[in-house]
Design a protein around this nucleic acid. Structure first.
Lengths: 223, 223
DNA sequence: GTGAAAACAAACCGGTTGGTATGTACAATA
DNA sequence: TATTGTACATACCAACCGGTTTGTTTTCAC
């Protein structure tokens, strides 16, 4: 079954910590932990948290139970870590950083939304938004999950508010707009649009929905 | 453990089929099937399909495995039946019937949305929309679920389109509105709003979001 | 170099859970 | 009223799966 996977003895074994050399290390705890997290995210994204099997996670990494339970106390702790570390990174990379870097935040926002279907790849259509999936599944079941996911949503919306406020300052948005409320609606409506497309499995449904959302945003330009 | 639950011998045992007498029947297959479906819906709504335990379902009904597997081939068939029969009924009762019965469909639509938080009771805040929950969990995992849920969404949206068209005819809605697109957006945005409130567990978040949606609808009145 | 802790590997365990096999009481038909 | 299928109840099973225990190798501190 499991043909030789690891055991790639790196010749340079004197590197003290973390990835700095180019070759593979024999034992790199940080990298191992990272591999487990990535595999766990993948399983949760594709099967849900309750559907994730720890045996599948370690099979995907080529590690064993020993490694997994050395880095994480139990399945729940692994799930929490996926939210805090992996998913938080996705939001930061896909939303917050581009918005902060843009000179025209509102235009950038509508661009991200409009180009979602190609930017996020095929998985977005099939499996939807990782954060929303986990939220809908686990929020009612576990308070720990709910709080962490709530924190992430607040972080996301805070980034949107900053972008919208900046847009209002440079005249991209008409004054008097309740940016906090708009940000909340953007997140909610977008989650709904992605969820609908994920269910219908039709890309034009996603376009149909996001167009209404963009329309709503465009309308906020003028008085 | 299980103190006497059923075995309530009905004195009138000559009634041929289904509930017509007021007293409880000894054996009523239709009623039994209905009880199982209700309990299964409850479990799915509170724990998800994967989280539903058949032992909990039969415990809630006071029946046994024999009864369950007499009426349903397996867990999957039970899940399908919940979608087709129970959830479909909820949509019909909460949305389609009130819209059809109203003389002012758009006003009725905004009313339903605005009063969602009190109409659907406490469970909507805690557990969200039953259909959306199941869609987000099961659509990527099982094609049978996806198709049935998709059918339900189309049915729902079709009812909304009819209401919106009627609203346009009586002047409640401005002409030229793409009712198909608006209906899709309503369903998507509303699912997102409910999902967000379910995660934050704050009623004012639901109000905040639905207000934006109602605002969007109100804007469709005037040219 | 040496001891000790860290970073894994491998085998195992017990509760859970969907499903089945079998038995029995009821209900429609004749 | 005898008969036959329906509508359940009861007991049981095998696979799955999260978690543990134990053993081994690598790495770090001194």
């Amino acid at each position: 079954m499991n043909a030789g996977q690891q055991h790639i003895r790196g010749q340079a074994a004197m590197a003290p910590l973390s990835a700095q050399g180019s070759t593979a290390r024999v034992r790199d705890p940080d990298a191992t932990r990272h591999r487990i997290l990535e595999a766990a995210f993948d399983q949760i994204y594709h099967h849900g948290y309750q559907g994730m099997r720890l045996d599948d996670v370690i099979a995907a990494t080529g590690l064993t139970k020993g490694a997994l339970y050395h880095h994480f106390a139990n399945k729940l702790a692994l799930g929490y870590a996926v939210v805090d570390e992996v998913i938080a990174g996705v939001i930061d990379q896909l939303w917050l950083q581009p918005l902060r870097a843009s000179a025209r935040p509102l235009a950038e926002l509508t661009r991200i939304i409009s180009e979602l279907h190609q930017a996020a790849g095929h998985d977005l259509m099939t499996y939807g938004c990782p954060l929303n999936n986990l939220a809908q599944e686990m929020s009612p079941l576990d308070e720990g999950f709910r709080r962490r996911i709530d924190q992430l949503y607040l972080h996301w919306r805070k980034g949107l508010v900053e972008a919208l406020d900046r847009a209002a300052r440079i005249g991209e948005l008409r004054p008097g707009v309740d940016t906090t409320r708009v940000a909340a609606f953007i997140v909610a409506a977008l989650s709904g649009c992605i969820g609908m497309a994920k269910n219908s499995q039709r890309k034009d449904e996603l376009l149909l929905c996001t167009r209404s959302l963009v329309e709503y945003l465009e309308q906020l330009r003028h008085a």
